[in-house]
Amino acid sequence: MHQKLSFYVDRDSFLHHLNPLTKLTLVLTLVILSFLGLSYWLPTIIFLFIIIPLSFLGKVAQEFFNATVKLLLPVVGFLFVMQAFFHPDGTQVIFSIWIFDVTVESLSFAYLTASRILTMVASFLILLLTTHPSDLMSDLTRRGVSGNLSYVITSTLQIIPQMQVKAGTIIDAQQSRGLETTGNVFNRVKAVVPLVGPLVFGSLVEVEERAIAIEARAFTAPLKKTSLREIPDRAAERAARWIFIGVIIIAIGLRIWLL
């Protein structure tokens, strides 16, 4: 299980210094372009010629490739195999196993889906690698997103790894007391309750005191919140964001026109 949930790598790069919203807008633009279906090869082109260069620009290429190979390729690869075999369309059979055929059409469809998912997640990966979650949330809060929502997200990012550690401890402890977590289905289903119980109740009990603690620190004060973090935003970036939005609008227009 993962111990660390934030991908952020603290480096000094052009991408790191961009305003979080600029990066978020860019990511959304790339995701929308990949899914609109304007061209079969577009997701691949975006991945190869925009996302990979961006990872170098952000000085996170090493981390980007690691995450892509370890996290992305296995799941995208699995999806590709599933679709290659099970996609129903297609007549030009390449080979078949049992009643399932791998066809030219199913392969090409599998590749399209896989490349879209890959491009979508890789775009977000670039954002997450170069943006501290607190910076992203502070910037969004400053622009009117609820500060409470920002609390929920930054807090979740810290609670999940802690709870994963706790889960690991509980699994070890219960196993050493003889709880069977392998073997037949009955044993494994039975194991759910002693594993989940202590974990869930422990963390729920903390909720009440934590609510008191943040209430004591003016969490619900009816004032406009400020931020300790200073987040730069330049006129050029504002312009860039409008350009991205323009690209999205044109792309959607093109899609409708082509239909």
């Binding site: 929920v152 999940i160 609510a211």
Partner: peptide, 12 residues
């Protein structure tokens, strides 16, 4: 506030 504090725990 209870809801806001519960949500992250629930997601976890």
């Amino acid at each position: 506030t209870m809801t806001w504090v519960l949500i992250p725990v629930a997601i976890a």
